[in-house]
Design a protein around this nucleic acid. Structure first.
Lengths: 108, 108
DNA sequence: TATATGCGCAACTAATTGGTTTCACAAATT
DNA sequence: AATTTGTGAAACCAATTAGTTGCGCATATA
Protein backbone atom coordinates (compact mmCIF):
# COMPACT_ATOMS: atom_id res chain seq x y z
CA UNK A 1 0.00 0.00 0.00
CA UNK A 2 1.14 3.47 -0.84
CA UNK A 3 1.52 5.49 2.33
CA UNK A 4 2.83 8.94 1.60
CA UNK A 5 1.69 12.51 2.04
CA UNK A 6 0.07 12.58 -1.42
CA UNK A 7 -2.00 9.52 -0.56
CA UNK A 8 -2.90 11.17 2.75
CA UNK A 9 -4.41 14.25 1.10
CA UNK A 10 -6.07 12.39 -1.80
CA UNK A 11 -9.32 11.80 0.08
CA UNK A 12 -11.59 14.79 0.83
CA UNK A 13 -12.68 13.46 4.24
CA UNK A 14 -9.03 13.05 5.14
CA UNK A 15 -8.26 16.59 3.99
CA UNK A 16 -11.05 17.84 6.26
CA UNK A 17 -9.61 15.87 9.20
CA UNK A 18 -6.16 17.26 8.44
CA UNK A 19 -7.52 20.79 8.43
CA UNK A 20 -9.26 20.31 11.77
CA UNK A 21 -6.40 18.69 13.66
CA UNK A 22 -3.92 21.19 12.27
CA UNK A 23 -5.30 23.78 14.65
CA UNK A 24 -6.00 21.70 17.74
CA UNK A 25 -5.62 18.18 19.06
CA UNK A 26 -8.86 16.21 18.90
CA UNK A 27 -10.31 12.83 19.78
CA UNK A 28 -11.82 10.61 17.05
CA UNK A 29 -15.28 11.19 18.52
CA UNK A 30 -14.90 14.95 18.48
CA UNK A 31 -13.66 14.84 14.87
CA UNK A 32 -16.56 12.66 13.79
CA UNK A 33 -19.02 15.07 15.35
CA UNK A 34 -17.64 17.87 13.21
CA UNK A 35 -18.87 16.39 9.95
CA UNK A 36 -21.10 13.63 8.68
CA UNK A 37 -18.96 10.57 9.34
CA UNK A 38 -19.07 7.71 11.77
CA UNK A 39 -16.51 7.42 14.53
CA UNK A 40 -15.23 4.21 12.95
CA UNK A 41 -14.70 5.82 9.55
CA UNK A 42 -12.72 8.61 11.21
CA UNK A 43 -10.74 6.00 13.11
CA UNK A 44 -9.81 4.29 9.87
CA UNK A 45 -8.69 7.56 8.31
CA UNK A 46 -6.62 8.35 11.39
CA UNK A 47 -4.99 4.96 11.04
CA UNK A 48 -4.06 5.75 7.43
CA UNK A 49 -2.79 9.21 8.41
CA UNK A 50 -0.69 7.52 11.10
CA UNK A 51 0.72 5.09 8.54
CA UNK A 52 1.49 8.09 6.33
CA UNK A 53 3.35 9.42 9.38
CA UNK A 54 1.73 12.85 9.47
CA UNK A 55 -0.13 12.71 12.80
CA UNK A 56 0.93 12.60 16.42
CA UNK A 57 -1.22 11.12 19.17
CA UNK A 58 -1.39 11.60 22.90
CA UNK A 59 -3.35 9.37 25.23
CA UNK A 60 -5.25 10.96 28.13
CA UNK A 61 -7.13 8.37 30.10
CA UNK A 62 -9.33 6.54 27.67
CA UNK A 63 -9.25 9.38 25.19
CA UNK A 64 -6.67 9.74 22.44
CA UNK A 65 -5.88 13.19 21.10
CA UNK A 66 -4.67 13.41 17.51
CA UNK A 67 -2.76 16.35 16.06
CA UNK A 68 -1.28 17.03 12.66
CA UNK A 69 2.48 17.07 12.29
CA UNK A 70 2.30 20.27 10.30
CA UNK A 71 5.94 20.23 9.25
CA UNK A 72 5.18 17.19 7.10
CA UNK A 73 2.97 19.37 4.90
CA UNK A 74 6.12 21.07 3.67
CA UNK A 75 6.84 17.99 1.56
CA UNK A 76 3.98 19.00 -0.73
CA UNK A 77 5.30 22.52 -0.80
CA UNK A 78 8.69 21.21 -1.88
CA UNK A 79 7.13 19.17 -4.68
CA UNK A 80 5.37 22.31 -5.89
CA UNK A 81 8.71 24.10 -6.18
CA UNK A 82 9.24 22.72 -9.68
CA UNK A 83 6.12 24.57 -10.84
CA UNK A 84 6.96 27.67 -8.90
CA UNK A 85 10.12 27.95 -10.98
CA UNK A 86 8.01 27.87 -14.13
CA UNK A 87 5.50 30.32 -12.66
CA UNK A 88 8.32 32.70 -11.97
CA UNK A 89 9.91 32.18 -15.38
CA UNK A 90 6.61 33.01 -17.03
CA UNK A 91 6.32 36.02 -14.81
CA UNK A 92 9.79 37.11 -15.83
CA UNK A 93 8.90 36.57 -19.47
CA UNK A 94 5.88 38.78 -18.97
CA UNK A 95 8.24 41.22 -17.32
CA UNK A 96 10.47 41.11 -20.38
CA UNK A 97 7.53 41.77 -22.66
CA UNK A 98 6.51 44.72 -20.54
CA UNK A 99 9.98 46.28 -20.50
CA UNK A 100 10.29 45.74 -24.25
CA UNK A 101 7.02 47.54 -24.80
CA UNK A 102 8.30 50.31 -22.57
CA UNK A 103 11.54 50.60 -24.54
CA UNK A 104 9.72 50.64 -27.84
CA UNK A 105 7.55 53.40 -26.53
CA UNK A 106 10.57 55.39 -25.40
CA UNK A 107 12.26 54.93 -28.76
CA UNK A 108 9.42 56.63 -30.56
CA UNK B 1 -15.23 8.96 -9.42
CA UNK B 2 -13.29 11.68 -7.73
CA UNK B 3 -11.58 13.82 -10.35
CA UNK B 4 -9.70 16.67 -8.79
CA UNK B 5 -6.15 17.89 -8.53
CA UNK B 6 -5.51 15.91 -5.34
CA UNK B 7 -6.58 12.71 -7.05
CA UNK B 8 -4.39 13.63 -10.01
CA UNK B 9 -1.23 13.85 -7.91
CA UNK B 10 -2.01 10.86 -5.67
CA UNK B 11 -0.33 8.33 -7.97
CA UNK B 12 3.48 8.39 -8.29
CA UNK B 13 3.44 7.50 -12.01
CA UNK B 14 1.04 10.36 -12.57
CA UNK B 15 3.29 12.73 -10.62
CA UNK B 16 6.17 11.71 -12.88
CA UNK B 17 4.07 12.35 -15.99
CA UNK B 18 3.01 15.72 -14.59
CA UNK B 19 6.64 16.67 -13.97
CA UNK B 20 7.66 15.71 -17.51
CA UNK B 21 4.85 17.46 -19.38
CA UNK B 22 5.19 20.55 -17.23
CA UNK B 23 8.33 21.43 -19.15
CA UNK B 24 7.45 20.35 -22.67
CA UNK B 25 4.56 18.91 -24.68
CA UNK B 26 4.93 15.18 -25.26
CA UNK B 27 3.21 12.29 -26.99
CA UNK B 28 2.07 9.26 -24.95
CA UNK B 29 4.75 7.14 -26.61
CA UNK B 30 7.50 9.59 -25.76
CA UNK B 31 6.29 9.76 -22.14
CA UNK B 32 6.17 5.98 -21.86
CA UNK B 33 9.76 5.71 -23.13
CA UNK B 34 10.89 7.97 -20.31
CA UNK B 35 10.10 5.45 -17.60
CA UNK B 36 9.10 1.83 -17.25
CA UNK B 37 5.45 1.92 -18.27
CA UNK B 38 3.49 0.76 -21.26
CA UNK B 39 2.01 3.21 -23.74
CA UNK B 40 -1.48 2.09 -22.71
CA UNK B 41 -0.84 2.68 -19.03
CA UNK B 42 0.37 6.20 -19.81
CA UNK B 43 -2.68 6.68 -22.01
CA UNK B 44 -4.95 5.76 -19.13
CA UNK B 45 -3.18 8.17 -16.79
CA UNK B 46 -3.46 10.92 -19.40
CA UNK B 47 -7.15 10.22 -19.61
CA UNK B 48 -7.48 10.63 -15.84
CA UNK B 49 -5.40 13.82 -15.91
CA UNK B 50 -7.70 15.09 -18.67
CA UNK B 51 -10.75 14.29 -16.55
CA UNK B 52 -9.07 16.14 -13.68
CA UNK B 53 -8.79 19.01 -16.16
CA UNK B 54 -5.11 19.70 -15.69
CA UNK B 55 -3.73 18.84 -19.16
CA UNK B 56 -4.06 20.37 -22.59
CA UNK B 57 -3.66 18.40 -25.81
CA UNK B 58 -2.77 19.32 -29.36
CA UNK B 59 -3.12 16.94 -32.27
CA UNK B 60 -0.43 16.95 -34.96
CA UNK B 61 -1.19 14.37 -37.61
CA UNK B 62 -1.52 11.05 -35.84
CA UNK B 63 0.45 12.26 -32.83
CA UNK B 64 -1.13 13.96 -29.82
CA UNK B 65 0.99 16.28 -27.74
CA UNK B 66 0.05 16.62 -24.06
CA UNK B 67 1.08 19.52 -21.82
CA UNK B 68 0.37 20.37 -18.23
CA UNK B 69 -1.89 23.29 -17.46
CA UNK B 70 0.53 24.56 -14.86
CA UNK B 71 -1.80 27.19 -13.47
CA UNK B 72 -3.98 24.39 -12.09
CA UNK B 73 -1.17 23.43 -9.73
CA UNK B 74 -1.84 26.62 -7.84
CA UNK B 75 -4.94 25.01 -6.38
CA UNK B 76 -2.67 22.82 -4.25
CA UNK B 77 -0.67 25.87 -3.27
CA UNK B 78 -3.86 27.58 -2.15
CA UNK B 79 -4.84 24.60 -0.03
CA UNK B 80 -1.42 24.74 1.63
CA UNK B 81 -2.03 28.34 2.64
CA UNK B 82 -3.82 27.24 5.81
CA UNK B 83 -0.60 25.56 7.01
CA UNK B 84 1.57 28.42 5.84
CA UNK B 85 -0.32 30.65 8.28
CA UNK B 86 0.56 28.28 11.09
CA UNK B 87 4.16 27.98 9.92
CA UNK B 88 4.45 31.75 10.03
CA UNK B 89 2.76 32.01 13.43
CA UNK B 90 5.23 29.53 14.83
CA UNK B 91 8.04 31.49 13.24
CA UNK B 92 6.74 34.66 14.87
CA UNK B 93 6.48 32.89 18.21
CA UNK B 94 10.10 31.83 17.83
CA UNK B 95 10.81 35.45 16.96
CA UNK B 96 9.12 36.55 20.20
CA UNK B 97 11.19 34.12 22.21
CA UNK B 98 14.36 35.41 20.61
CA UNK B 99 13.56 39.06 21.28
CA UNK B 100 12.59 38.25 24.87
CA UNK B 101 15.93 36.53 25.38
CA UNK B 102 17.60 39.57 23.90
CA UNK B 103 15.75 41.93 26.24
CA UNK B 104 16.53 39.81 29.27
CA UNK B 105 20.19 39.92 28.31
CA UNK B 106 20.09 43.68 27.98
CA UNK B 107 18.45 44.06 31.34
CA UNK B 108 21.35 42.44 33.11
C1' DT C 1 -2.22 -0.38 -52.41
C1' DA C 2 -0.02 -2.78 -48.56
C1' DT C 3 2.29 -2.11 -44.29
C1' DA C 4 3.83 0.23 -40.19
C1' DT C 5 2.96 3.50 -36.62
C1' DG C 6 0.41 6.26 -33.01
C1' DC C 7 -3.39 6.41 -30.62
C1' DG C 8 -7.90 5.67 -27.74
C1' DC C 9 -10.80 2.39 -25.85
C1' DA C 10 -13.06 -1.80 -24.16
C1' DA C 11 -12.64 -5.99 -21.48
C1' DC C 12 -10.47 -8.25 -17.95
C1' DT C 13 -7.75 -8.82 -13.49
C1' DA C 14 -5.80 -8.43 -8.83
C1' DA C 15 -5.29 -5.14 -5.38
C1' DT C 16 -6.84 -1.23 -2.80
C1' DT C 17 -10.22 1.95 -1.03
C1' DG C 18 -13.73 3.87 1.97
C1' DG C 19 -17.33 2.66 4.28
C1' DT C 20 -20.36 -0.36 7.56
C1' DT C 21 -21.40 -3.63 11.35
C1' DT C 22 -19.78 -6.04 15.12
C1' DC C 23 -16.71 -7.12 18.67
C1' DA C 24 -13.29 -6.76 22.65
C1' DC C 25 -11.06 -4.11 26.00
C1' DA C 26 -9.77 -0.46 29.05
C1' DA C 27 -11.16 3.60 31.55
C1' DA C 28 -14.71 6.37 33.67
C1' DT C 29 -19.12 6.67 36.01
C1' DT C 30 -23.10 4.94 38.72
C1' DA D 1 -19.89 -4.42 41.17
C1' DA D 2 -22.53 -3.07 37.13
C1' DT D 3 -22.93 0.12 33.42
C1' DT D 4 -21.51 3.56 30.23
C1' DT D 5 -18.09 5.60 27.32
C1' DG D 6 -14.02 5.94 24.11
C1' DT D 7 -11.33 3.48 21.38
C1' DG D 8 -8.86 0.08 17.92
C1' DA D 9 -9.49 -3.64 15.05
C1' DA D 10 -11.47 -7.44 12.42
C1' DA D 11 -14.75 -9.07 8.94
C1' DC D 12 -17.30 -7.90 5.27
C1' DC D 13 -18.90 -5.22 0.99
C1' DA D 14 -19.35 -2.46 -3.27
C1' DA D 15 -16.70 0.62 -5.86
C1' DT D 16 -12.45 2.20 -7.68
C1' DT D 17 -7.73 1.74 -9.16
C1' DA D 18 -3.72 0.68 -11.95
C1' DG D 19 -2.27 -2.29 -14.77
C1' DT D 20 -2.53 -5.78 -18.94
C1' DT D 21 -4.03 -7.71 -23.46
C1' DG D 22 -6.29 -7.17 -27.60
C1' DC D 23 -8.81 -4.51 -30.77
C1' DG D 24 -10.11 -0.88 -34.34
C1' DC D 25 -9.15 3.31 -36.69
C1' DA D 26 -6.70 7.03 -38.71
C1' DT D 27 -2.35 8.70 -40.41
C1' DA D 28 2.15 8.05 -42.29
C1' DT D 29 5.41 5.38 -45.10
C1' DA D 30 6.99 1.72 -48.47
Amino acid sequence: MRRDIFQAIADPTRRAIITIIALQAMTPNAIAENFNTSRQAVSKHLRILTECDIVKQEQQGREIYYTLDIEKMKEIDIWLDQFRQIWETRFNQLDDVLSKLKNEKNEK
